[in-house]
């Protein structure tokens, strides 16, 4: 079955992002297809590559990055949510002359059209917030 996952929650402040991460791993391990991850609202913080955690804590952003890279996932960060929260890639950084990149390059910064597209192409859309 083809899934898309929408994440509205920032990591750490609630359990939802960690739940979404475990759910995504499980569905991939079961052989299902993931059409897209879509990070929206505070969910864009999951793509922050500047996070540092204590040694005995799980780095959720890094775990997403590893999962996206090792499984070759399509992952989109909503642009309107991201730039106001300081989550920028190379392109957005140059556009707004910010001199810094805070987003992992494993996700693409794009618009809500990608969520509509994911809805059209997926058998199931599962939301975590």
């Amino acid at each position: 079955m083809k899934f898309s996952i929408v994440i509205y929650a920032a990591p750490y402040s609630s359990e939802a992002a960690a739940t979404a991460l475990r759910f995504t791993k499980t569905l991939l391990d079961q052989g299902h297809e993931l059409y897209r991850l879509f990070f929206f609202g505070d969910g864009v913080h999951n793509a922050n590559r500047l996070s540092v955690v204590a040694q005995d804590d799980k780095n959720i952003q890094q775990a997403w990055d590893e999962l996206i890279k090792t499984r070759g996932l399509d992952s989109v960060i909503c642009v309107s949510s991201a730039i106001k929260r300081g989550i920028v890639d190379e392109t957005e950084s140059q556009r707004y002359e910010l001199n810094a990149v805070s987003a992992y390059d494993s996700s693409e910064i794009s618009g809500l059209g990608q969520l509509v597209d994911a809805t059209l192409h997926s058998d199931r859309v599962v939301n975590f917030g």
Partner: peptide
């Protein structure tokens, strides 16, 4: 567990999340 969580998402026609 999580395996059944995913299976339930397949078994039912759609998922509505309350958060």
């Amino acid at each position: 567990g999580y395996d059944a969580f995913v299976e339930l998402c397949c078994e039912y026609d759609k998922v509505v999340s309350w958060f």
